[in-house]
Design a protein around this nucleic acid. Structure first.
Lengths: 228, 228
DNA sequence: TTATAAACATGATAATTGTCAGTTTTTTCT
DNA sequence: AGAAAAAACTGACAATTATCATGTTTATAA
């Protein structure tokens, strides 16, 4: 079994959701792709004829607002599946997927997914669970965006980065985002993000080593996130 | 066939997604409930053992933020199904559902839904499509919340209310929200919402008759929403 | 029908956040 | 290495939004 199936299985969190033949069918149709940092996997409005499984690297899923700013809605890493929502509803993509660092993705054609969905209830229910979970997360983001200050959201973002992407051997966040991306995650101006991150450094909440950032005072950051 | 099945069918947009026996099973288990304005159907953290179909009236789905403010994430009207996300993921409710006006809902037990999901791929796929659509909408809300001003969001909210809940015979919005609810929909302070709504009146973008509100200048409102 | 509460409204002010106009630092490319 | 570009940073200021205090109107219930 190739690694691509692992993405699908991990994503849907059930080894038994797909039968051997289904996995075989998916396996036969897969294509592997290397995507360099900054490159676009697909853009807003693109018609997708398949989904992309992330094997390695991180992608930002963002939407361009009318005023020209990008809002990053989600960060997707190893094991995530991109574009499934659009494939399921048969609409064009409503987000664009851009590589935050060098990535390896594999492509699974629409038909392979749709056939399994239509014939295998277990698989459909697993996908359903997964999307339902995404929806809960999205609702939480809505509440955060509208009820928390930029400072709180940036504190949360650092915690999120540590929890979801981990640390390297020296304790620095495994995923380094530019200040601009950080601003686009929390929905603020780049300058505002820079200022607040500088403050966090001065307060000893985080520390930096070159581009790398580490959380220095987890409790303190948590306090800020809750609303000091 | 009772009206309760109509909710389910309308929601999932497919007459053929449920077999006759399945509909019968659902029909046998349903319970109808009257909910008065302001009453809670279920609250954040409640364990749901079924879903609620909205037969009549409107419910707000909201989440209490730590600072004590409510964020309304969604407004659900006739034909909508409440609580399905939590039932599917088998988590407690992450939103509370409160009646905005007098409602009639019917309750469908968890098992009836889960059995159909597990045995009927068409039904599962229809539910999946529906939740995928909700997810797209939630992503759009995230972008709006973070990239638009309060004024823009209030203008959009009026347009949304007209498009989704319609007008009465005199052209007034069929759904009247309090200023506080309006503020909680767009994620701002009640006073800010009041001020902006007053401005809209002065500018002739909307007009009021008692509690009722009508859009007076649709194009103008649209301009404001886009960012005048 | 009055009292009581809730919703609506307004002013003054403070806090937050965005914008613009730069400078400095780091990265990239030849 | 050196030029050019991108990213990070800073200050000054303006715009937006929240908060608090209070008054007015409208709805609700005894």
């Amino acid at each position: 079994m190739g690694r691509c199936e692992n993405c699908i299985i991990r994503q849907f969190n059930s080894l038994r959701a797909m039968s051997k033949e289904e996995l075989k069918r998916v396996s036969d149709t897969k294509t592997t792709k290397l995507v360099k940092k900054g490159e676009t996997i697909f853009g807003e409005g693109d018609k997708l004829n398949g989904v992309y499984c992330v094997r390695d690297g991180v992608s930002k899923l963002s939407k361009l607002s009318p005023n020209g700013k990008d809002q990053i809605v989600k960060l997707a890493t190893k094991g995530a599946v991109l574009g499934q929502r659009s494939v399921i509803t048969e609409e064009v993509a409503n987000l664009s997927a851009i590589a935050v660092n060098d990535m390896e993705v594999c492509f699974v054609p629409k038909d392979a997914i749709m056939d399994s969905l239509n014939s295998n209830p277990n698989f459909a229910v697993e996908v359903l669970r997964h999307i339902a979970h995404d929806l809960k997360e999205a609702d939480d983001v809505i509440v955060n965006m509208s009820q928390k200050t930029v400072k709180q959201r940036i504190a949360e973002a650092f915690i999120y980065l540590e929890e979801n992407f981990g640390k390297d051997k020296n304790g620095y966040l495994a995923l380094t985002l530019s200040r601009e991306d950080m601003a686009n995650v929390v929905g603020t101006a780049t300058e505002s993000a820079i200022r607040i991150i500088s403050d966090f450094k001065k307060l000893g909440l985080i520390k930096a080593f070159g581009k790398k950032v580490a959380i220095a005072d987890r409790n303190g950051l948590n306090e800020v996130a809750k609303g000091s």
